[in-house]
Design a protein around this nucleic acid. Structure first.
Length: 382
DNA sequence: GATCACTTCCGACCATACCT
DNA sequence: AGGTATGGTCGGAAGTGATC
């Protein structure tokens, strides 16, 4: 059994270890604080204002994860009683107990150690970030029974080979041709790659644009509930792990934030195209056309909302945190997929950004339980 | 101390939005 | 259409202050 105390100030952690899992948004970002955030421009020099210090309407409660044997810096904030406990099959808690099956937990057995970078290096982390917009077309909504039939990526900073697009052979009937215009005969061909053949190419493409030591931020509209889970399912079906240095960002919350200011509830990609008066290139609901539109939308969103690259990284953290927070609140069946100490801590860190007042209260309760040590957290043994 | 009115908090529920 | 997230409304419980 490993007992891993979790300090409630994740922002001051100097070093910790994190077990990674493809089913997460990637959980290796720690130690985040506005105090040390400096802005970093997105890659389009034509967009003024990005990197400007926008006024935050919210604050983040600091949290740190620590694991025994890996602590080398005295913490300035008080230690909480929160502990990560590996109990083989059960996440124990004073007031709650979350069960995990042995076979299910075995999928977490691979541990990776992650050096948490020092606070001073966050600016360089942002500078080393490659932002790539992506979009997928599928045979339907179900990530279990439907397949990706087209994927397109566009590197935000542009340059040579900045766009990648391909059809994908699903080896099945395409029932929703009327949505995207992609027919069965277009994709069920020998010269169209299958997902398992495409993924290595995809990985190669992304890494060719990745800066040494840097991370990749993959951006999609409604990524959180559609594109990313779908992509992860496809990787999973091919028994390939999503790289741990891939981070994901959803533009939908950003769009909602902006459109709310504009007095509208609509925040679909189509609405954003109209709002920003962006002219579509190619057919609607084709991946390449949509991803090009999304790239322009992202630039306009970040400009209008005054978001720097570091702000986008923060949004990723919120996204990861939110997912875990909801998972914890929903119960053990989802928790088993998401219990990674660092990300769980991030969940608490993101609570103040919860828009829905009802959920906000739930997450606050969750945070309080964490603080009191009444919720256990799994840290997988090597 | 008992009662009442008012405010605040919280959970439940529903409608809407988003992706293909 | 399926799954997920958000935002709004409603009603009950709890807290607070004024009045008798």
């Amino acid at each position: 059994m490993i007992i891993a105390p979790m300090n409630l100030s994740i922002f001051h952690g100097s070093r910790c270890r994190v077990n990674t899992l493809a089913h997460l948004w990637s959980g290796s970002l720690h130690s985040w604080t506005r105090r040390h955030i400096t802005t970093s421009k997105l890659h389009d020099p034509k967009v003024p204002g990005i990197g400007g210090g926008n006024t935050k309407k919210w604050t983040r409660r600091p949290i740190t994860t620590k694991t025994e044997g890996s602590i080398n810096t005295p913490q300035t904030s008080k230690l909480s009683s929160i502990r990560h406990e590996v109990l083989d099959e059960t996440i124990s808690a004073t007031s709650s107990s979350l069960s995990i099956g042995k076979t299910e937990i075995s999928q977490f057995q691979k541990l990776q150690y992650c050096e948490v970078q020092k606070e001073e290096s966050y600016e360089s982390l942002a500078n080393l970030l490659t932002i790539i917009c992506f979009d997928i077309e599928t045979t339907g909504f179900s990530r279990d029974s439907d397949c990706v039939i087209e994927i397109a990526l566009q590197v935000l900073r542009g340059g040579k080979n900045s766009t990648f697009q391909t059809l994908v052979n699903p080896n099945k009937f395409v029932p929703n041709t009327k949505v995207h215009g992609i027919t069965s005969s277009m994709v069920n061909r020998r010269d169209v790659p299958r997902m398992k053949d495409l993924i290595p190419i995809l990985l190669q493409y992304v890494s060719s644009h990745q800066m040494p030591g840097g991370k990749v931020l993959l951006v999609a509209h409604n990524a959180r509930t559609f594109d990313v889970p779908f992509l992860i399912s496809e990787f999973s079906r091919c028994s390939i792990e999503v790289p741990s240095d891939w981070l994901f960002l959803d533009t939908l919350p950003l769009a909602r934030e902006l459109m709310k200011i504009e007095g509208s509830k609509k925040a679909s990609q189509k609405d954003l195209m109209e709002h920003f008066q962006i002219k579509r290139e190619g057919d609607a609901h084709r991946a390449e056309s949509d991803v090009k539109g999304l790239t322009l939308i992202l630039r306009r969103l970040t400009f209008d909302l005054k978001l720097s690259t570091l702000d986008l990284l923060e949004r990723f953290i919120e996204m990861a945190g939110h997912k875990v927070a909801h998972a914890v609140l929903k119960g053990p069946s989802v928790v088993k997929e998401l219990c990674i100490g660092s990300v769980l801590a991030l969940a608490a860190g993101s609570l103040w950004k919860m828009h829905h007042w009802n959920e906000q209260r739930k997450v606050r309760t969750f945070y309080d339980l964490l603080e009191k040590g009444e919720i256990g957290v799994v840290v997988q043994e090597e």
